[in-house]
Computed example of a mutant assay.
Amino acid sequence: MLYAFGFERIGVVASDLYFVDPDPIPGQEGAERGVRLEVRLFRRGPLQGTIYDARPIHVDRPVWRADLLESVAGPAGSLDRAHHHPRFKGWNPGHRVFAEGLSEAPLEWVAERLSDLDGLLAEAGMAADEAGPDDAAELRKAVPDVMAAVRRLLDGVAKGELARPPSGEPVTEARVSWL
């Protein structure tokens, strides 16, 4: 499932995720499940004909990512693998950063980060003017809706309805998600 919240030049996308890293860092072996949330650049495409046409929407490159993940082998709801990626190089995320408070209060931690778009952009190495002039204020207003969507995704993961492994034989590498 994919949720998208778009503002002028910045947007937030969230999706369930089932993930098996073929080359995990020590201590991160095994399948993971949970929710991935990304702040991304958004662009409106030009209309293709008349004023009534559907407008192309481009969900462009990532700025910041939070992975609210847990080990599939561990207890459901533990979010023992929750981390974030404060920087990207193009489409590639930097290393996992395990922040204090992220596993204990993930929704509150992510909401606080989203409420400070200027700080998030600065940490990502981006200029504040890469966002639209009202993006920070609009995102702050939308944080309760974004977090409600993330909560729905986490609930679906906990119930086994989302972030499910691919069907078939056991896998050594998988990424089942929109993101």
Rank of each mutant, 00 (worst) to 15 (best):
L102F: 05
L102C: 02
A131Y: 08
S177P: 01
S78K: 10
A136I: 05
H84D: 03
F88G: 01
S78G: 09
V171M: 12
D135S: 06
A82I: 00
A124E: 00
G168C: 07
L114M: 10
H95I: 06
L121S: 06
V97A: 09
L120S: 01
P144W: 11
A131R: 06
V176C: 06
V150I: 12
M147V: 08
S115F: 13
E123L: 09
H85Y: 02
A128R: 13
D135Y: 07
A128Q: 10
V150A: 05
G168D: 04
V143W: 12
A174W: 06
G156A: 07
E100C: 12
E104M: 11
V143L: 14
R175T: 10
V176D: 00
L117Q: 02
A111T: 05
A137N: 06
R152S: 12
P165E: 01
H95W: 10
G94C: 05
D118S: 13
M126A: 11
W109G: 01
H85S: 00
D145H: 14
S115A: 15
A137D: 07
G156W: 03
L114F: 12
A149E: 01
K141H: 15
A163Y: 02
R164L: 14
R96M: 09
R152E: 04
L117T: 01
L162C: 03
A105S: 13
A124Y: 04
D135K: 07
E104C: 11
N92L: 15
L153Q: 03
A111Q: 09
